[in-house]
Simulated scan of single mutants.
Amino acid sequence: MKFFEKYLMIANRSVLIALLAAMAIIIFSNVVLRYATNQSIEWAEEVARYMMVWLTFVGAGPVLRYGGHIAVENLQDSLPIAWARAIRVLIAVMLTGFFIFIIWYGLIYVDRVQYQMTPTTQVSMSWVYASMPVGGALLLAHWLIIVRDYVLTRTFASDSHFDANASASL
């Protein structure tokens, strides 16, 4: 399991880095061309927008894994440990269901928009909407790795790459 977990994070981070780098290069190049030559890359804004969609869905898993999403925890902080665990079990079941829902309906959307083309690049919108089931699957994979520790002790994975306090103290 640790082998899978390690390579899942390596692959997930690599895709995020590649998407962000490509977006930055495309947008920077477009801005430079616009101001230097008064011409712009026609497809730059569209491609960058769709890359941002992919970045959002692919990045949601690691953020969940390290407890980076917004959460209201006052109720479970005020309850006895057994009741707090029961609430976390309910949350875990609901999140698992939601991630499965994202995957299922994402696949339906991918199928429905397969013949719709993007305005500038004329690529099937199914490539854009595929970010939803892929992101949902990554969310589910990351969630299943951390759910036990979350339910039992409300702890998340720790990693200096995702810990703002650890990198600020360096």
Score class of each variant (00 low, 15 high):
A44D: 01
A44E: 04
A44H: 09
E45V: 12
E45P: 06
V47D: 13
A48F: 08
R49M: 15
R49E: 04
Y50L: 08
Y50A: 08
M51L: 14
M51R: 08
M52F: 13
M52H: 09
M52Q: 07
W54Q: 04
L55Q: 12
L55C: 03
L55E: 07
T56R: 10
G59A: 11
A60M: 15
L64F: 15
Y66M: 08
G67F: 07
G67A: 09
G67C: 14
I70E: 14
I70P: 10
N74M: 04
Q76Y: 11
S78D: 04
S78L: 05
S78F: 01
L79V: 06
P80K: 12
I81Q: 12
W83F: 06
W83A: 14
A84S: 05
I87V: 15
R88L: 07
R88N: 01
R88T: 03
R88G: 08
R88A: 01
V89K: 04
V89N: 00
L90I: 09
V93A: 14
V93S: 04
V93G: 07
V93L: 14
M94Q: 14
M94N: 11
L95W: 09
L95V: 11
T96W: 02
T96D: 10
G97D: 10
G97A: 13
G97C: 06
F98E: 11
F99V: 14
F99T: 08
F99H: 14
W104C: 06
Y105Q: 02
G106D: 12
L107C: 00
Y109Q: 08
V110Q: 12
V110I: 14
D111H: 13
D111Y: 15
R112W: 07
R112L: 07
V113K: 11
V113W: 10
Q114N: 12
Q114H: 13
Q114E: 04
Y115Q: 14
Y115D: 11
Y115M: 11
Q116W: 10
M117V: 05
P119R: 01
P119C: 01
T120E: 12
T121E: 07
Q122H: 15
V123C: 10
M125I: 10
S126F: 05
W127R: 08
V128Q: 01
Y129V: 10
Y129R: 00
A130Q: 00
P133R: 03
V134E: 03
G136H: 11
A137D: 06
A137P: 05
L138E: 04
L140H: 03
A141R: 03
A141K: 02
W143H: 02
I145Q: 08
I145N: 01
I145T: 03
I145P: 00
I146F: 00
I146W: 07
I146P: 00
V147H: 08
R148L: 15
R148N: 11
Y150I: 03
V151S: 01
V151I: 15
T153G: 12
R154S: 01
R154N: 02
R154E: 01
R154K: 09
R154A: 09
F156M: 08
A157R: 12
A157Y: 11
D159N: 15
D159R: 10
